[in-house]
Every structure is written in C-alpha cells, then in structure tokens.
Amino acid sequence: MKVMAAPPETAILQVDDLSVCFETSRGSVQAVSGVSFAMAKGEVYALVGESGCGKSTTALAVMRLVPPPGRIRRGHIRLGDEDLLALSDEAMADVRGRRLAMIFQNPLVSLNPVYRAGSQIEEAISLDSVPRPVAWRRAIEVLGRVRIGDPAERALRYPHELSGGMRQRVMTGMMISRTPDLLIADEPTTALDVTIQARILDLLMDLCSHSGMALLIITHDLGIVAEIADRVGVMYAGSLVEQAPVYELYEDPLHPYTRMLMRALPRLGKGQGRLETIPGSVPDLIALPAGCAFHPRCPERLAICASQTPVSRVVGGGRTVACHRGEVDR
C-alpha cells in the first residue's frame, strides 16, 4: 500500500495544473480545470466522477488525444523524464503504444474487425522491429498472460468470434504487449457483466503488481475503485476535488461531494433507510458558478464558497482536498 503522493523524482506520471477546454459555438467548455496529480511506478490510480466531470478528457489529454475542438490550454504532463506536451507529433506517436497505452470501454470497436486477434497483437509487437515469427510467438504468450484459455487457437479468431470479456482481454493484451510504463483504462468494464468484470480487474491488478506498470483507471463506479485502486482522485465539474489513498477515502471522505456520492450508493436492504441524494444538477461547464463549482449543491457551504475557488491543499497522509470548510476545521 502506498500512502504518500509520489514525490516527483520517482513519479512515472506527473500532471500539473492541466486545463482543457472545448471551443463550441455556445462558448468555451471548461472540461478540465487545473488538475494536478502524480503516479508512482506500479501504482493503480483511479479518477472517479460522474459523467461530464472531465475524467475521460484528462485521460485523453495524457495521451494527447483530446479530439477537436478541444485543446490543452495550460499545464504540464510528464511521463518519466519526458515532457509530453513539448514532444513533436511523431515523437508522441512513438511514446504512445511503447510507453503509454490505453484501453477503452467498448473493445469491439477498438479492435479491427478484419484482422485476427493474434495478428493485431503481432502487429503491435513488430513495431519494435521484432521479426514476425518471434512476434507471433510473443503474441500468443501475451494472450496467455491476459488469461485467455487455449491462446494458440484463440489467436486465429476474429474479434466478432470472441465474447465481450475476451475481446477486452485481447485489447488489454495488445496494449501491454510492448510493456508500457503506464496503461490508461477508460471504463474498461462498463460494458461487461460483473463476473467478467471481476476477472478483468483481477488481471489488471496482477499486471501492475508483477510488471511494475502503472495503471490509471477512469471510472464512475465507486465499487470498482474500492476493488482495485491504490489512490483515488475524485473529480467534479472539471476539478480534482479530493485525492486520497483508497482506504482513507472510503473511511473518511473529506470533500462534501465525495461524502454525498458515497452515501448515494445503495448498501443496505429495503426499508433500511433512504439514499442520500445530491440536490440540484451538475453545472453547465460553459458557465461554471463563481467560487467552488460545487457550492450551489453543497449543504455545508460557507459564504466564501460562492466567491473564492478553493485551492487544493495537502492535509497529510498523502491526501489533498479542495474545500474551504477544511481550512477552518482541520
């Protein structure tokens, strides 16, 4: 268990003050505002939040794949000692796949339907100028590593001949085949059944603990976070409102939004109390409220919350929180 925020010199990924906006005809959508976090080697870091909170955009920004009209307005992203935002497009393309890889929610559309599962992995491996026969052998090895039974036979199948869970494992295999430093998984199990999800999560955790690969998992599901993450960042309306090691976050959430989100989840049986709900709705990212973006929905708001944006501050134990309340209380 890692408790401390990774210090810069050992960090594999370091995101500083990242801001991404989308210029639309209605105005500028502030999708990510001033997000900073760091990940250590082998760490599983979860970015969690509801739809529109900016978690996926943050991941795409790390890949430098933010789709137009989006663009990275501010910030730094470092992978090891490489400044990703300073790289040329060719250099970035080389980093992608080799040091940085990403799996998506829907593995059917992420795999090329006209190539066999094994060929797609072979293709990825041969990018490192590995001769084809060797690459094919390694592709089969990789399929075994992502726990696909009978890998030599399955390597010959086309994506549509595989089940959803198997496709996601092929995708994962393809992404880890070149042993990246960091794997980004955007809602990797949302389209899958729970028993299959459990297997994918087990697999991802094992890959991290055995290979030292770091995993950035993007999810809306606090159950998945509890199951797999070492540290967690909670996002709301484009900002990282709280960061903590997973145990601390679940036992003592500091930000009012995190607390309310946790209580909105059903844990008990019928007739054992109502769920807590968060009043109001997610703000329009074009016209964010002044001060703390959560203040209009926050039952604990102070006068200052409507005027001043809270700054993320370290509260010890590797935790950060962006809330004015804590400034007085703690």
């Binding site: 039974g149 089940s163 869970g165 198997m166 729970v194 028993t195 299959i196 999800q197 459990a198 297997r199 599901d221 606090l222 159950g223 998945i224 509890a226 199951e227 993450a229 997973v246 145990y247 679940y250 946790m262 989840l265 844990r267």
Partner: peptide, 22 residues
C-alpha cells in the same frame, strides 16, 4: 462475490469464481 462491495478492506474476501465464459 464478484460485485464490488464498496469497501476496499473487503478486497481479499472469499470469492467464488466461475470458469470460462457463459
């Protein structure tokens, strides 16, 4: 046992695993 229990301390709970796919 496959459903995540919203508590990281239950990660190592006993799990009944099914082989293969449906």
């Amino acid at each position: 046992s496959a459903s995540p229990p919203l508590n990281p301390r239950l990660r190592d709970r006993k799990r009944y695993r099914l082989e293969g796919d449906p």
